[in-house]
Design a protein around this nucleic acid. Structure first.
Length: 510
RNA sequence: GCCCCGCUAGCUCAGUGGAUAGAGCAUCUGUCUUCUAAACAGAGGGUCUGAGGUUCGAAUCCUCAGCGGGGCACCA
C-alpha cells in the first residue's frame, strides 16, 4: 500500500540523518489541498529541535535522500513540509491493476472474534434507535471480515429478566382483557401477541397465571425474535448465532463464573444477596444474586463472558452498545479482568442515541417509530446510509448507486491524461488507507465519506464531456475510449466494494 | 452532586497537534437538439460555545465555565 511504503521510506531517511533513539512521531497524512500534492509530512518541523536545524533545511535534505521503492511518488520540500505527489504513470498503472475486492488487507491475521450487536430485549419490535446499532455492528463486521478477521456475529437474547417477565405478564393481561400490570407494556403489538397465543396455544386461557405466564412469555419472545430477525434481514443483516440468556444457567456457566469470583475474593454476601466488587472495597459493589435467589442480568453476563472467552475461545469480543448503557462498560471490564480475561480483549463500542423530536422513544409506553416503518418509507439502502452517515442524506445514496449502475464494462490500456481522469485514479489510490483507518479506529462512517469523494470525482470525469464532447467516455478514438472504460471498471469495483462494506446494494441496472 | 458523550456555515455533520477549517442540504448564478441534469460548473455563507493554559504551531491536548444528550438500581 502506497502510504505504508512512503512511511517506511520516510523513517529510513530520517534514520539516515542520524536520528535514532528518540524519534518523534512522524505524522504522514493527506494534504490540505491538491496543489500541495497527495500525502504530506510535517516531520521537518518535528525534527527541528532534535537536529537543531531549520525545518526548511531538514525538508530539503529529506527530499534529497528519501527513496521510495516503487517510485509511486515524487517528493518536494515546501515551507517546512515534505509533500508527496502520486506520479501520473503510477496512477495509470494502478487503474489497470484494480480488481474486485481491491483494498482488502490482512490486518487481523485470521483472528477469531465475535461481534455482538443488536441484542435488544425481546419485548417488542425494533425501533429506529435500534436500527443504528444494528447497522453499525453489521458494518464493523463487514470491515473486519474484509481485513482478515474471522468474524462471528451474535445476538444475545435477554430472555430471563424483569423486563421480559413484565412483558409476559402484559401479554397475559391482554389475553384476559385486563389492564397491563404496573410497569407493563402498552403497545398494540402486545394485543397481537395475545391473539396469536390464543390461536397457537390451546387451553392457555384456562391455565392459572403462574403456569400460563412463563409459557406466554416464551411464546411471545420467540415471536418477537422472529420479527427482529425479519426486520434486520431487510437491512441485509444476518446473525451467525442467536444466544439465549437462559442457556447460561442451563449449562452451569453462570455459577461457574460466580464460584471463580468467590474464590478470588470478588463475591461478598450482604443483606441476603451476593455482590460483586473489589475485594477490599464496598463502594462500587453490584448485586449478582438477589436476596430472593434470582440472578441479575449482571450474573448472566459473567457466565456469558466465560462462554465466549473460554468455552468458545474467541480471541476478542466486540460489543456495540447504545449510549444509555455506557455506565455499564467499566463494570463489564472489571468483571472480565476478575475472571482472568485481559480487558483489552473486550472491546465496547458506544454509539449515541436516536431521539425523536417529540422526545425519547419508549417501548413500554408504545411511543416509537419502528425500524420497519422507516424501511418502508425510504428503503433499506437509504436507511443504512442514513445511519452510517449519522445524518439523512439520501441524495448521496442515490448518486452512488445510480452512478455505479451506469458505468460500462469493457477494459483496456491507459491514455488517461486529463486532470479529472487522474483525480479518479487518485481517489482509488486512497481506498486502502480508508479501509485501514476505518478498521483500526473502528469508524465505519469513514466509508460513506469516501464513497462521496469517489462519486464526486467520477461525476466530474463523467460530466467533462458535457461541455466538450472530446472528453466523453466514448469518443472516436477507440484506444482512448477503452482507457476511459478501464477507469470506469476500476472505479466500479472499488465503489462496489465500499458499498458492500456498508451493506448498501449497487444494482447493475436502475 | 459525580461520571461519560457532544457543541465546527442557516440545518445535518466530516475534520490521525500542522499549511488558506471542509462536505451535503438550503440560498443564488450558469449548463439539457449531444453515450451525460436524481447531474455538473460556480457564488455567498465561520469569533470552530466561552475564558485561560501547554506548544515553533491548537477546532484537535490540559484546566475552568456554559449549553445539550445520556448514565449513576436487588431495571436491562
Amino acid at each position: 500500500m502506497v502510504r505504508e511504503s512512503i512511511r517506511a521510506a520516510l523513517v529510513d531517511a530520517v534514520r539516515g540523518m542520524g536520528v535514532d533513539g528518540d524519534m518523534p512521531d512522524l505524522e504522514l497524512g493527506r494534504t490540505k489541498s491538491p496543489e500541495l500534492g497527495d500525502y504530506a509530512t510535517s516531520a521537518p518541523q518535528k525534527l527541528a529541535r532534535v537536529l537543531r536545524e531549520a525545518p526548511d533545511t531538514i525538508a530539503a535534505r529529506l527530499v534529497e535522500t528519501i527513496t521510495i521503492t516503487d517510485g509511486a511518488v515524487t517528493a518536494e520540500a515546501v515551507r517546512g513540509y515534505v509533500n508527496f505527489r502520486l506520479r501520473d504513470d503510477w496512477l495509470r498503472d494502478l487503474v489497470s491493476r484494480i480488481e474486485p475486492g481491491y483494498g482488502a488487507q490482512d490486518i487481523g491475521h485470521g483472528e477469531r472474534l465475535q461481534v455482538e450487536f443488536g441484542s435488544i430485549n425481546p419485548t417488542g419490535p425494533l425501533h429506529i434507535g435500534h436500527g443504528r446499532g444494528v447497522t453499525i455492528g453489521d458494518s464493523i463486521s463487514r470491515l473486519l471480515e474484509f481485513t482478515g478477521h474471522a468474524v462471528e456475529r451474535e445476538y444475545y437474547v435477554n430472555s430471563d429478566n424483569t423486563q421480559t417477565r413484565r412483558f409476559g405478564a402484559s401479554v397475559y393481561a391482554r389475553l384476559h382483557g385486563q389492564e397491563p400490570p404496573e410497569g407493563g407494556y402498552l403497545g398494540e403489538y402486545v394485543a397481537e401477541m395475545a391473539e396469536m397465543a390464543r390461536r397457537d396455544l390451546p387451553e392457555i386461557e384456562k391455565e392459572p397465571e403462574a403456569e400460563a405466564e412463563p409459557k406466554l412469555r416464551r411464546y411471545a419472545m420467540e415471536k418477537v425474535i422472529e420479527q427482529i430477525r425479519a426486520s434486520v434481514a431487510r437491512l441485509g443483516v444476518r446473525y451467525d448465532n442467536w444466544f439465549w440468556e437462559d442457556t447460561i444457567w442451563q449449562s452451569g456457566l453462570g455459577w461457574k463464573a460466580i464460584e471463580r469470583l468467590r474464590e478470588a475474593g470478588y463475591i461478598k454476601e450482604r443483606d441476603g444477596a451476593l455482590w460483586f466488587g473489589e475485594p477490599d472495597e464496598d463502594e462500587e459493589d453490584r448485586v449478582v444474586i438477589r436476596a430472593n435467589g434470582q440472578p441479575t442480568y449482571f450474573a448472566s453476563d459473567l457466565g456469558y463472558l466465560l462462554s465466549r472467552f473460554e468455552e468458545r475461545g474467541f480471541h476478542r469480543v466486540i460489543e456495540v452498545w447504545a449510549a444509555d448503557h455506557h455506565g455499564y462498560v467499566a463494570r463489564m471490564k472489571a468483571a472480565a479482568e476478575a475472571l482472568g480475561v485481559e480487558p483489552e480483549r473486550l472491546v465496547i463500542i458506544i454509539h449515541q442515541l436516536v431521539n425523536l423530536k417529540e422526545g425519547r422513544m419508549s417501548k413500554r409506553a408504545g411511543r416509537f417509530v419502528t425500524l420497519d416503518e422507516l424501511i418502508d418509507r425510504v428503503g433499506s439502502d437509504a436507511v443504512r446510509y442514513f445511519y452510517l452517515l449519522r445524518s439523512p442524506d439520501t441524495t448521496i445514496e442515490t448518486v452512488a448507486t445510480q452512478q455505479h449502475s451506469r458505468l460500462p464494462d469493457k477494459a483496456d490500456v491507459s491514455m488517461l491524461v486529463q486532470p479529472w481522469e487522474l483525480d479518479v485514479a487518485r481517489q482509488l489510490a486512497f481506498w486502502p488507507d480508508v479501509v485501514e483507518d476505518a478498521t483500526r479506529l473502528r469508524e465505519p462512517h469513514r466509508i460513506p465519506y469516501y464513497v462521496h469523494d469517489l462519486a464526486t470525482a467520477v461525476h466530474r470525469f463523467y460530466h467533462a464531456g458535457n461541455a466538450q464532447s472530446e472528453y466523453r467516455v466514448v469518443v472516436d478514438d477507440a484506444n482512448l475510449t477503452r482507457a476511459r472504460l478501464e477507469l470506469c471498471r476500476a472505479a466500479r469495483h472499488t465503489l462496489k466494494t465500499a458499498l458492500d462494506l456498508m451493506g448498501v446494494s449497487a444494482p447493475e441496472r436502475m
